[in-house]
Design a protein around this nucleic acid. Sequence first.
DNA 1: CTAGTTGCAAAGAGTTTGCATGGCG
DNA 2: CGCCATGCAAACTCTTTGCAACTAG
Lengths: 130, 130
Amino acid sequence: MRYNTKQRELIISFFEKNGDKRFTASQIIENKLIDVGEATVFRYLSALTKEGILRKTQGENAAEYSFAKNECKAHLHLQCTSCGRTEHMDCDFMKDIQNHVENFHRFEIDNLRTVIYGKCSQCRSKENKK
Amino acid sequence: MRYNTKQRELIISFFEKNGDKRFTASQIIENKLIDVGEATVFRYLSALTKEGILRKTQGENAAEYSFAKNECKAHLHLQCTSCGRTEHMDCDFMKDIQNHVENFHRFEIDNLRTVIYGKCSQCRSKENKK
DNA sequence: CTAGTTGCAAAGAGTTTGCATGGCG
DNA sequence: CGCCATGCAAACTCTTTGCAACTAG
């Protein structure tokens, strides 16, 4: 059994409101973004990730969590290592990638866990100006 | 300036010999896989990653390091979340992915940092038998 | 009422840093 | 000989866990 508690609702609605934004447990706790005890934050971040409600990715030092929209389960995510922005790869070619990896490599991609790192064009042009 | 020390050579040749295998700093230290002090292991894992000699990826709890072959800079890596095995995506379609992401999303993939998570066919058939 | 949940504090794991000693060039 | 590298121990950060009080169903 699982209880519907105030803390659970607080955490889910926090991420729901914050769209694509990613947060570490420490950010939430230190800045008091949600009024829930430290251990409980960790417990729910972990539980909600298992339930598929949150998306967990690894930041530089700590795990980052964001809201896992349903569409996100169907596409990959490009994350710029300079500015940190995430782009959702919701284009037609996404299906081709999925098919190739499935048929040729016999591998089923986990779109929630995977992050494609690299540089977005804006950050690259900024760096070239230096 | 940078010195060529015994420790540096030990660490590089250890990873060179171990091909695709990934190791955490703790595995190396606790099992004495390399005869180098704790802090020095961490210092070199970090330094060699910056130099592009090692490939750093995030395991469940700790960073994992493996030897970064030159070919690896040109393709993505599929890693099974069940058995942990890594498959190198060195197929012709890899170029198409690179081109699409570059031209359509204006994003330059970092192949050393990126890991595509999912399940390999062997692990999926094993799980279906349960 | 009963079983799951909370929050505090303590513990644990991974990683970084200060500093005196040692070694490369 | 001068500067960088090493190793130990201490410090730090992120995360998990034990436990008594609390709360949803």
